[in-house]
């Protein structure tokens, strides 16, 4: 039997970090189930779900990865999902609509704070977020993917956010994932083909 852990690794981004990490996992008998990686300002971060043999001690896993990835100064955290309570995603099996929200404009303090509070109010889950400041123009661009409970009025929400940020000169766009897919790919749309 395998046991699943959630693990994050933060390290300096140098060639070979992923190879070292994969090596360590291999030696521990680990198997990656889900993974997402990002590099920001020369730092490498990865979050993954991985299965390990049930008898493998979590401390051994962390120590071994730390040792193998020592040249990169890796910080490793390991969590056992079965010990965590109250996940949004797993306690609510209702299907949700996915939207992509983008904000662009001058870099103002408090924008993300307002947005996150507003989304939380409607029970909207922010499942992906990326953003960056364009130093040449001093503008900020953020794109995020939202998982929205059924029955939420997207038209209304988008209009509300637009009104809110208008005075700051920030442009808000919000589009359904399926519309983005329909505009980007010339495959048939609307035939109940599943868009992830």
């Amino acid at each position: 039997m395998a046991k699943r852990y959630i693990m994050t690794v933060l390290a300096a981004n140098r060639t070979g970090i992923l190879a070292a990490l994969a090596n360590a996992l291999d030696e521990l008998g680990g198997n990656i189930r889900d993974v997402s990686q990002a590099v920001i300002h020369k730092f490498f971060a990865v979050i993954m779900a991985a299965d390990f043999p049930e008898d493998q001690d979590p401390e051994v896993i962390v120590d071994h990865i730390r040792a193998v990835c020592r040249p990169f100064g890796a910080e490793v955290t390991l969590r056992d999902p079965s010990e965590e309570m109250g996940f949004d995603g797993e306690t609510e099996p209702t299907p949700k609509e996915r939207y992509v929200l983008t904000l662009s404009g001058p870099d103002r303090p408090g924008v993300l704070r307002f947005l996150a509070h507003r989304l939380a109010l409607d029970g909207i889950d922010l499942v992906d977020l990326q953003g960056r400041q364009q130093e040449s123009t001093q503008t900020f661009l953020a794109a995020m993917e939202l998982s929205v409970p059924p029955g939420t009025d997207a038209l209304h929400l988008c209009e509300e956010l637009r009104q809110e940020f208008q005075s700051d000169g920030i442009t808000v766009t919000m589009q359904h994932r399926r519309i983005i897919a329909a505009l980007a790919h010339p495959e048939p749309v609307g035939f109940n083909t599943a868009v992830p």
């Binding site: 590099v39 661009l141 589009q175």
Partner: peptide, 19 residues
């Protein structure tokens, strides 16, 4: 600045179209 994902650059293309 090097950014890690193509996802992000793809999203930069999204504009609100008057649909």
């Amino acid at each position: 600045m090097v950014h890690s994902t193509g996802f992000f650059s793809a999203l930069q293309q999204i504009r609100q179209l008057p649909l």
